[in-house]
């Protein structure tokens, strides 16, 4: 493996920092972000077949939001808890990758 000896970086393992090189795979790893319950993301890449809600709607827990077709299966995406639809980022017919933000929610304050 070709070595670029000049590019040693500080690499923390527990309480100590070591001088070392990073692998390409390590550099390209995805940083973890704490998922927000108010963001409905696609769990699989696919196509939006149908959308049942509009922005501003208050939707009850368990009611359908949209149909995401992936691998010939029609996945019914349901409301995780009762909330208002703040923003819809997808349209019927579009193809979306995995982890794309489909719908944003906001809390219903006047319960």
């Amino acid at each position: 493996m070709e070595t670029e000896k000049t590019e040693y970086v500080d690499f923390a393992v527990t309480a100590r920092k070591y001088k070392t090189l990073l692998t390409k795979k390590y550099q390209n790893r995805k940083a973890w972000v704490n998922p927000s319950p108010y963001e409905i993301q696609s769990i699989i890449p696919g196509t939006i077949l149908d959308i049942f809600v509009k922005e501003g709607d208050v939707v009850k827990e368990g009611e359908p939001l949209l149909i995401l077709e992936a691998m010939k299966m029609q996945n019914r995406i349901e409301m995780p808890f009762t909330a208002r639809i703040k923003k819809i980022n997808v349209e019927v017919g579009v193809k979306i990758p995995k982890d794309s933000l489909m719908i944003e929610l906001e809390a219903v304050d006047n319960e």
Binding site: F11, V13, T20, L21, L22, T23, K25, Y26
Partner: peptide, 12 residues
């Protein structure tokens, strides 16, 4: 291999 990732063990 201390030259890469300080020689840690990981999944791979």
């Amino acid at each position: 291999q201390p030259m890469y990732l300080a020689g840690v063990l990981d999944c791979d």
